[in-house]
Structure formats: structure tokens, C-alpha cells
């Protein structure tokens, strides 16, 4: 992707030549693209085209169709009352307390689980990166939770927290029923999420750790940095692109949280996420209009978050403007 932005001049070493670089860059911006660059760009588009077309065909249709449905009053229980109502479904949803509760729950789960996963994942990544003995064993065992089907894992969490029979319930809350109280239920949902996806985070971060050259850390210790300073001032900035990718993936993933809630509480005691209530309205309630409205709103949230992250990426990669990495 970045091939087209590599500047031949940046590899030249002679000093004299380098003096001319600022000027040259200015020129490059004004005189648009050379013939070769144009060709390269065209080839790039051609190579991307098949994938892009498939993507558009597969995703654009459902998105547009949902949007179309969201503009109608359309409840399969009352098919005769189908009517085009413009944005009134949006007004209904956005003024509804349930939606906002679910939205709050989703945000809470997302923020808490992603933050905790980032911290734990970073720790795990560093351990996996540094261990010299039994590397394969350490990595495999760390990745096991990620390999288990979410629903299966969720059921084992549910059994573990079931009063009377569950070992965790007996151990930590012998008198209560943690899954039936809002705060503890949310805590357990978040815990299940974290347990499940920290390994994924760690894997992505480990790829980022590999980006940090050893010499850089050695140079930092020679410059007088403590372990913590090396971590925060050298490792984190260099890893920033990888961290952002990991955060983006996990945030979008966490926003759609469904399986764990479905199995653990089924949305009881105001523990529904937005995906849960969209599902309840659309599939269980057969209210296509309201359900689709919620889907579109979820889609918009995801789009906004993705946009913000991509904006952040832009300035994240060190020297990325030169396509040098």
C-alpha cells in the first residue's frame, strides 16, 4: 500500500543531496503525480477492486436494506399497519429509556473490558515476548481462552456462578446469587469478556513489540532511562500503531457484546447491551422497523468510533508520511 509514497531521495546518503530535500518535497506536492506514480496507483486500484466489489456487494445491501426498513413502521405481528414514517422510529428509540440504559451498559462493558484487556494483554505480551524457556508452551496456554467458543465459555461461567452448584459462587458469594444482581452480573459479564479476549489483545500487542528494535531499548538505557521510562517513552510510542489496531479491533468487538450477556443473564436486571435489545426487537419481537433502527444506530456508533481511530492512526505511525516503515 505504501509503495507509492516511497521517495527515492530519502535513501540517498550524500549530504549535499540532502540539503535539497525540503525543496524537492515542496515540489512533489505541487506537481501532482508523475506518470509512473499514476500507473502504480492505477494498478493499486485494480488489484483492490475485486475485494472492494465483493465487500460492497456483501455489506452495502444489508446496510441499505436496514436503513430502508428503519424508515417504516413495520411490525410482522401487524403487517397491515406497514407505513413509511420517515425518522419517527429514530425519535422513538432515542427518547426511550431502555435504549439509553442498554447503550450505557454497552459503553461500560466496552470501556472497562478494553482498558483492562489492554493492560493485561500488554503484560502478557511482554511475558510471551521475553520468555526464553518454554516459549511455545507459554504462548499456547495463554491463547487457550481465545480458542474456546464464546457460548461454551459463557455457559461454564454461568455454571461457575450458579448458587449452590457453582464453585465460584460458593467460594466468593456463598449467600447471594451474583448473576441476579445488576452490579455483580455486569461485573461477571465483563470478567467473562476479559478472560476470553485478553489473549487476542496480547497477540496483537506482541506483533507490536516485535516492531521495537532492541538497539532502541539499549540506547534508552544508555541514555539513563529506567525500566518504566523505557516502556513509556520508547516502547509505547513505537508500538502505537499496533496498540491502536488492537484497541480498534477490541472496541468494535466489545460494542457488539451479545453471547456472554445472552447466556449469563439474558438481559435481566437491565444488563442488556444494544445488540441484545436490537435482537429482542428484531427477531423476538418481530418489529422490523424499530429493530432496524437500532441496528442502524449501532452501525453509526461503530462507524464513528472507527473513524476516530483511523484519524488517530494517521498521525500515529512515526515517519509514516515518508512511507518508510
Amino acid at each position: 500500500m505504501s509503495v507509492s509514497s516511497t521517495t527515492p531521495a530519502s535513501s540517498a546518503a550524500a549530504d549535499a543531496e540532502q540539503q535539497a530535500i525540503p525543496k524537492q518535497r515542496g515540489r512533489r506536492k505541487r506537481v501532482e503525480l508523475s506518470e509512473g506514480k499514476k500507473q502504480e496507483r492505477k494498478l493499486g486500484w485494480l488489484l483492490c477492486a475485486p475485494a472492494a466489489i465483493v465487500m460492497v456487494a456483501v455489506t452495502a445491501y444489508p446496510i441499505l436494506y436496514s436503513f430502508w426498513l428503519s424508515l417504516q413502521r413495520y411490525d410482522l405481528k401487524f403487517p397491515d399497519e406497514r407505513e413509511f414514517v420517515w425518522f419517527s422510529n429514530y425519535v422513538t428509540v432515542l427518547t426511550n429509556g431502555y435504549w439509553w440504559t442498554a447503550f450505557g451498559v454497552t459503553m461500560l462493558i466496552t470501556v472497562v473490558s478494553v482498558v483492562v484487556e489492554l493492560v493485561l494483554g500488554m503484560g502478557l505480551a511482554i511475558i510471551m515476548h521475553r520468555t526464553l524457556v518454554g516459549r511455545g508452551l507459554v504462548r499456547t496456554s495463554a491463547l487457550i481462552p481465545y480458542g474456546i467458543v464464546t457460548v461454551v465459555a459463557a455457559f461454564s461461567w454461568r455454571y461457575a456462578w450458579t448458587p449452590g452448584t457453582g464453585y465460584l459462587a460458593n467460594l466468593l458469594a456463598p449467600d447471594g446469587a451474583p448473576l441476579t444482581e445488576r452490579a455483580s452480573a455486569l461485573g461477571i459479564i465483563i470478567l467473562a469478556e476479559i478472560w476470553k479476549t485478553t489473549p487476542f489483545m496480547a497477540l496483537l500487542l506482541m506483533a507490536g513489540l516485535a516492531l521495537v528494535p532492541d538497539d532502541l531499548l539499549k540506547a534508552a538505557s544508555m541514555d539513563g532511562a529506567t525500566w518504566w521510562q523505557r516502556f513509556t517513552k520508547v516502547m509505547l510510542p513505537v508500538m502505537k500503531p499496533a496498540i491502536l489496531v488492537a484497541l480498534l479491533f477490541r472496541t468494535l468487538d466489545a460494542l457488539r457484546v451479545f453471547d456472554n450477556i445472552y447466556v449469563l443473564t439474558n438481559g435481566a436486571n437491565e444488563t442488556s447491551s444494544v445488540s441484545m435489545i436490537a435482537y429482542n426487537n428484531l427477531i423476538k419481537g418481530l418489529n422490523l422497523g424499530i429493530g432496524s433502527t437500532m441496528s442502524v444506530l449501532i452501525f453509526l456508533t461503530v462507524a464513528i468510533i472507527a473513524f476516530v481511530f483511523v484519524k488517530l492512526f494517521g498521525t500515529a505511525a512515526p515517519g509514516s508520511d515518508e512511507g518508510k516503515r
Binding site: D215, L216, K218, A220, M222, G224, A225, P237, V238, P318
Partner: peptide
């Protein structure tokens, strides 16, 4: 520790902080 030896080092890769 290296940081307590008060020595500076120049690396072959230069090891400049890219950020």
C-alpha cells in the same frame, strides 16, 4: 546499571527514537 555508569553509546543502527 548502564544508566548509572554515565557512559554514552553510538549504535551501528543509530537507534534514534522515531517518535
Amino acid at each position: 546499571q548502564p544508566k548509572d555508569r554515565d557512559i554514552a553509546m553510538v549504535f551501528q543502527s543509530y537507534a534514534l527514537y522515531p517518535n
